[in-house]
Design a protein around this nucleic acid. Structure first.
Lengths: 333, 333
DNA sequence: GTTGGCACTCGGTAGCATCGAGTGCCAGGA
DNA sequence: TCCTGGCACTCGATGCTACCGAGTGCCAAC
């Protein structure tokens, strides 16, 4: 669709613009790329590229800037995936070597790692409420009128919910409730949670009903957890403060972030540029995403949000490596 | 230390500057405040206030802006604490009425609430690893070689830690470990965790040792949880993008935020202005903090970070109300 | 199809005059 | 002694003009 030379020119413009954030003129292209023609020829080609929507001029008599379509072509023709810089590879390795237990902490730290590696904002969406089955249930009294249901699911997730007790319950009844719940819930998926058969004791039954209800609710309501690392990078990436505001505003809304990443993944994309993200405030951004797995099951998504003039190959390399190592780390426990 | 009129003038300058972000001239003070003297008199007083360090001029022949000392005086002489705007009070009430179970979620949401109320960044530091005693311990097998220890503490906190098993252990051994741990740990504070007496079975003992070790480590390492809400407000509060970067950079570092709030509280302050925060990047910021309690015990801290030209009375009212309601909500469960 | 040449555009910068908000100071009055 | 009106002065902000130069489009020649 684009002859070899035009593609090379486009590539040169994109690369230079990513580097300098300045409109690129024909002379620069001749100087910086392997294109061995005169600037006049480049000018002609650039005019064509503009007509076809790959480039645009901020104003007459300025250099060219890539359009969304231009970035898209660039990304689609990047060639073989780059590998991480040496120092970054080391950073990733040591990060995962020292990674330990707590899932949330780990995801939080991963989002930061992504931020550090790319100098853009790193995003990690945690495993959603999955169809995991209940592995263990326990009710623990905290105060006279408050108890905690703690549920461990088969995927290792731990959920807890506070219950307010209408009447103080003794140890025995709490114990009875735990036993009753354990007997009936263990092994069933969350969606199959139904009312429990009565146990005979009214107070115990009430507690059980409350516990089951809270579990069901939590599954329904609980948004996927979102971790964002490197928000200050956003302020570094744009110099229009208005843009910074808008982008930060988006990153603050957990729900929006989850849908954003999910949509992009669902559309089979690895990179979403500008309006491809489907969010107006991200018009000047690009988003790189990758899923990660736990035990071979698709678990969540990681991503990097930066300006559309981002260093795509480095960022893509970082996201790929991190998603891979994260999957491995979460699977091996 | 400052006669009545000078104090009134200072107050007027601070208020006007908070409102407009423009240097305030003597004419404005005469117009906007209750001071019934000529602008020349105000000028003389302002010159004195400058000499005494309450005001400064960005450049000769411009109006005055408050110094840190000026803000400090202003805050120390605010008079009776303001109450929240009607709509804000409603927002706080409905927020806490709908607040539910999950502690982390609640703290996260609270940080956002603070952000919303004040249009600055809201910060919440979760209850630290306290000297709570162990209420319940349970080991749950997840995969053949991974298990989870779940511990409920007397304050309602739930901790979990993944254990990697050297050898696959059967249900019975995991059950035995749970029983063994429960028997020996229940009721003891975390700091008293010591090696358990042997149980006879080597594999079970190994598992128990691992569990105890991970609990001890987590208590030591685990930083207090920090939740920041309304980061995009930071971009709204300053127009120098460099400042935005620096402030966001600070807010990203959980450890720094924890120490920051703790230091301020420890010094018995409610408001820290500029260098009083002890952090160079926050030179143009002010921080309002308040502790919150759970069951009457000091649990954590909430705060608001904004520009030093912030609406102190509203922000202080918001922080006070939220810390109060949060304490109540967490205590009543 | 490519190239050197050329006229043209237009944003950015520097220089300069002007404006006005604000100051400091002083002499006169309560 | 303190307050006030008056006045000269300062200096950032604003607007204007001229100019520079990077960059373009087009054309005639190769």
């Amino acid at each position: 669709m684009l002859d070899e030379r035009k593609a090379a020119i486009l590539r040169a413009v994109v690369e230079e613009y990513i580097d300098t954030a300045q409109p690129v003129g024909s002379a620069h292209v001749v100087r910086s790329s392997a294109v061995q023609v005169s600037s006049a020829t480049v000018r002609n080609d650039m005019a064509t590229l503009e007509q076809e929507g790959f480039l645009r001029q901020p104003h007459t008599s300025a250099g060219r800037i890539p359009t969304e379509k231009g970035y898209r072509f660039f990304v689609d023709n990047l060639g073989p995936p780059a590998s991480l810089r040496r120092t970054d590879a080391v950073q990733v390795r040591t990060f995962f070597e020292h990674a330990h237990g707590e899932l949330e902490q780990m995801l939080q730290d991963t989002s930061r790692l992504l931020g550090d590696l790319t100098t853009y904002a790193g995003v990690v969406v945690g495993p959603g409420p999955t169809e995991a089955t209940v592995r263990s249930v326990q009710v623990v009294g905290i105060t006279a009128t408050a108890a905690l249901v703690v549920v461990v699911l088969s995927n290792g997730a731990v959920e807890k919910h506070t219950l307010e007790l209408a009447d103080p319950l003794g140890e025995e009844r709490i114990g009875a409730a735990t036993a009753h719940l354990a007997a009936h819930l263990t092994g069933s998926p969350r969606s199959a949670l139904a009312a429990l058969p009565a146990n005979g004791d009214a107070a115990t039954d009430a507690l059980c009903t409350q516990a089951v209800a809270s579990l069901r609710d939590q599954g329904g309501d609980a948004p996927d957890q979102v971790f964002v690392g490197g928000t200050s990078q956003v302020a570094r990436a744009f110099d229009a403060i208005e843009t910074v505001r808008e982008v930060l505003g988006v990153l603050e809304q957990q729900y929006v972030v989850v849908t954003l990443l999910r949509d992009v993944i669902d559309r089979g994309l690895q990179v979403a540029i500008g309006t491809e993200t489907g969010m107006a405030p991200l018009a000047e951004c690009a988003l790189i995403v990758a899923p990660y797995q736990v035990e071979g099951e698709l678990a969540g998504t990681i991503g990097v949000l930066g300006p559309s003039r981002m260093d795509y190959s480095q960022a893509m390399a970082a996201v790929a490596v991190v998603s891979h190592r994260l999957s491995k780390s979460l699977t091996e426990g």
